[in-house]
Write a protein that binds this DNA or RNA. Structure first.
Length: 824
DNA sequence: AACTTCTTACTTTTT
DNA sequence: GTAAGAAGTT
């Protein structure tokens, strides 16, 4: 039926002019809707264009969440919609939480509840639990995580007699994931995809889906894919949902994949009241199925769409914005957008080269401390909380961690294995899963010999064959195998005992409602009153972990991680407090998978550029801007120009995280997989507009009191005996075409206060105004946002300009050009 | 079944 | 260089 390429589904319903909307909007203003106060014209337009498709192109730091929440408030306030006529979709739970908080304050008291607000996955789970039978599942299906997925696929690969070493399960999992992102069921795979994975891709995919159905389970991709399938096959049902969600809002639209796009399009068909918010320049998740195309194509997908650009930035100072703009300008596939700010003061983006990665880490550490103590000339004091290091790849973090540990600089690494992905948490959860769903084979397999009970490969195989012969789940198979004496010795007793325990725990858990998620918010959930004598789910959880011997296992473990793991188990029990029962908790974890910890100590943040999207820091360090590392070689090899453009967007995201001070750095030498390599500065460094960059000189470089000559000796500080070849590679790095070009340009433009060949004392000098293009009083100039104007006063490099249309503004000279050069 | 050695690969990561 | 996972050993 309807498919991805079927473009004209929306054409049928032409944009309807809404007379009521204008009247109501006026009424809302008259009533003094305070959510409209303080919106700039673009934001206001995005908020007040209620009917029909709207694309809100919101650049970094332009107040999109404000606009989005104001829009929801406006929909309700004008009477166009009741809160629960609105569907608002986000990508992350964090974003959903944030929006929920902000909307609650705005929409409270307007009748019917809250908008349908959640991640794509959370909303799809709700839908799927109601209609599971339409894709052959029961409504209490389990959601598998990656680990379960891989183990399942391994079994299938082995069963198919394929060498798992040459064809690893991970790879197949990746392929299947990709297909699901593209909304491809096994039947819809193209010829090329069928041939994937040693010609078995399609067959294994189909087998995997069949196994999932047997297990009454699905993976993350299925949540979307199943709902798309259901909507496509059941138009009547789709219609119900279309009229339930009268207005749809989507955050981070540039990150949607094909399946998500199709789901949205199906739901928005008809009324077409869909407002997508996003920034094509911040699309950095192409590698996991996000289609920038979705946002680039919006106007074609939704004819008559209104496109609103939010370009006024409230986050960063002008040089930072200008530097970011100069980099992103190198991308071809853009909708086009330029950030600007009313702010006129601010630092240049700082650029510095180092001898190697360790030196870079050392320098950053010192710089952070100087910032924190307030000893940086011209700069205010920045607490550790206000500073962040953003890296391209997580392995870069190590150098910083090592250095910060030795100097005792408190830091926090964001990312890495999440709480619910840790081994001990997953084990504990597997116990809970078997207790709640005795037919959960994957969970049973995980815990049957954890802690060690003497149930090894042989015993497991016996259990599996018994289960298969009797057509029952593993747990039942194990019961039979133990009773009938198929299992021998230690295994037999251990399994019998485990089964007895599981049965007992299950009966204790049975009164508790399994899934809250099945019921809609507007339906009353029947909840049995808790008998106070009855065991709580928290006590039950503790009982399970203690009686199974799991806690003891870690208490007896003398590896350094053991205490931390016990600590985590306690955290897990604590997390249960927020739920009514184990089932509800499991559902939450399957979808949320993160755990906010409350820290109070001030710390520097270290994280990846990907992790930093949506965040901002007064001070940002961007280390490792080197060819191969950033842009990542792999990205370019695998995806060519597309890959490079995504890397460039990542650079843009990085720079635009900074509010006040942005420092980019690179190293001339770096250890890559244990091998020393000489590195070239990143091409993105070449792309930085030199007039917005301040090149710093590393300490110790040519500044060490005359001992240094050329590239030899201790010229690079750090007490290292630099070898000749090291010196050569250092020289190579600084003689690279890009670096030279940058320096030449900087010198020509006179904005570089120092370069690598000058002594270090010039490091914190103010921009040398004599070398900057000078404008005199009365001169006519052009600014790309404010237009033409006359210089009325000068002070160093700061000009006071009376603009023809925007009035008087104080600007840094490098942001304006002579009016005649601009073509006046 | 548990321990040890060897091979291999190696961005980014949410749900 | 290292960490995980598989194969080989006790």
């Amino acid at each position: 039926m309807s498919s991805y390429s079927d473009d004209d589904a929306f054409e049928a319903a032409a944009a309807r002019p809404s007379l009521s909307q204008m009247a109501m909007s006026a009424a809302a203003s008259a009533r003094g809707a305070d959510y409209l106060d303080g919106l700039n014209p673009a934001q206001r337009e995005a908020v007040e264009t209620l009917d029909g498709p709207v694309l809100m192109l919101a650049g970094a730091g332009t107040g999109k969440t404000k606009a989005l929440t104001a829009r929801i408030a406006h929909l309700v306030n004008t009477g166009n919609a009741r809160p629960n006529d609105i569907l608002a979709v986000t990508f992350t739970n964090k974003a959903a939480r944030e929006m929920k908080n902000r909307v609650e304050g705005l929409v409270g008291g307007h009748g019917v509840g809250m908008p349908w607000l959640g991640t794509f996955h959370a909303i799809c789970v709700k839908q799927l639990r109601r209609h599971a039978e339409l894709v052959g599942l029961k409504s209490n299906f389990t959601i598998l995580d990656t680990d379960d997925q891989i183990r399942l696929l391994k079994q299938l690969i082995n069963a198919a007699g394929i060498d798992e070493k040459r064809w690893p399960a991970r790879q197949l999992a990746g392929l299947i994931d990709n297909w699901k992102n593209k909304a491809l069921t096994p039947a819809k795979l193209g010829a090329a995809d069928e041939a994937a994975f040693n010609d078995r891709g399609k067959v294994l995919y189909a087998q995997y889906q069949a196994r999932l159905k047997d297990l009454n389970a699905c993976d993350f991709g299925d949540l979307l894919l199943h709902m798309v399938t259901i909507f496509q096959n059941h138009p009547d049902l789709l219609e119900q949902y279309q009229s339930r969600y009268k207005y749809i809002l989507v955050d981070e639209y540039q990150d949607t994949n094909v399946a998500q796009y199709m789901w949205l399009r199906l739901l928005a068909q008809g009324h077409r009241n869909i407002c997508c918010v996003g920034d094509d320049d911040q699309s950095i998740y192409g590698w996991r199925g996000a289609e920038v195309g979705n946002i680039l194509r919006f106007e074609k997908d939704f004819p008559g769409a209104k496109v609103v650009r939010l370009e006024q930035n409230y986050r960063s100072t002008p040089h930072i914005l200008a530097a970011a703009s100069s980099v992103i300008a190198g991308n071809r596939d853009r909708l086009g957008k330029e950030l600007w700010t009313e702010e006129t003061e601010g630092e240049l983006v700082r650029l510095i080269g180092h001898w190697d990665g360790e030196e870079e880490a050392r320098w950053v550490g010192e710089e952070i401390e100087a910032m924190a103590s307030g000893s940086r000339a011209r700069l205010r004091r920045y607490s550790l909380e206000e500073q962040a290091i953003l890296v391209r790849a997580s392995h870069q973090m190590r150098a910083f961690e090592d250095r910060f540990l030795t100097i005792g600089l408190p830091y926090r690494v964001i990312g890495g294995p999440r709480f619910y992905e840790r081994l001990e948490i997953r084990d504990a959860m597997a116990y809970f899963r078997v207790v709640i769903s005795p037919e959960d084979d994957l969970a049973f397999e995980r815990i049957v010999n954890t802690p060690k009970r003497g149930v090894g490969n042989k015993a497991m195989q016996d259990i599996q064959s018994v289960a298969r012969e009797n057509g029952v789940a593993l747990k039942e198979g194990a019961r039979i195998a133990a009773q009938e004496g198929i299992l021998k010795g230690k295994a037999r007793g251990a399994v019998a005992q485990l089964i007895e325990q599981l049965d007992r725990w299950s009966s204790l858990a049975i009164q508790q409602i399994r899934y809250d998620g099945v019921a809609d918010e507007d339906e009353v959930v029947e909840r049995p009153d808790h008998d106070p004598a009855e065991i709580s789910h928290i006590e039950l959880a503790e009982m399970i972990l203690d009686e199974s011997g799991y806690t003891t296992m870690w208490q007896n473990d003398k590896t350094p991680e053991a205490p931390g793991r016990l600590e985590n188990l306690k955290e897990l029990i604590k997390a249960l407090e927020q739920f009514d029962n184990l089932g509800g908790f499991l559902e939450h974890v399957a979808l949320i998978m993160d755990n906010e910890s409350d820290e109070q100590e001030e710390k520097v943040t270290i994280m990846t550029l990907h992790g930093a999207k949506g965040l901002e820091f007064p001070v940002v360090f961007l280390p490792g801007w080197e060819e191969g590392l950033f842009p990542s070689q792999r990205s370019m090899d695998e995806s060519g120009l597309k890959g490079l453009e995504e890397e460039r967007r990542l650079a843009y995201v990085g720079i635009t995280r900074a509010e006040e001070v942005c420092t980019i750095s690179f190293a001339g030498n770096r250890r890559v997989y244990g091998q020393w390599q000489s590195q070239l500065p990143s091409r993105f460094i070449d792309e930085l507009a030199p007039e917005h960059v301040d090149i710093l000189t590393p300490p110790g470089l040519y500044g060490g009191g005359g001992a240094a000559g050329g590239f030899g000796g201790d010229a690079f500080g750090s007490g290292r005996e630099a070898s000749f070849s090291d010196a050569v590679s250092k020289a190579d790095a600084y003689n690279s075409p890009g670096w030279k070009r940058l320096q030449e340009r900087s010198q020509r433009l006179g904005t570089a206060k120092t370069n690598l060949r000058q002594p270090k004392k010039a490091r914190n000098m103010v921009v040398d105004s004599t070398a900057t293009p000078v404008f005199g009083v009365g001169e006519r100039v052009f600014h790309k946002k404010f237009g033409y104007g006359n210089v009325v006063d000068t002070e160093g490099d700061k000009l006071t300009i009376n603009f023809d249309h925007s009035g008087e503004k104080r600007l840094v000279a490098s942001f304006v050009m002579a009016a005649d050069k601009a073509g006046e």
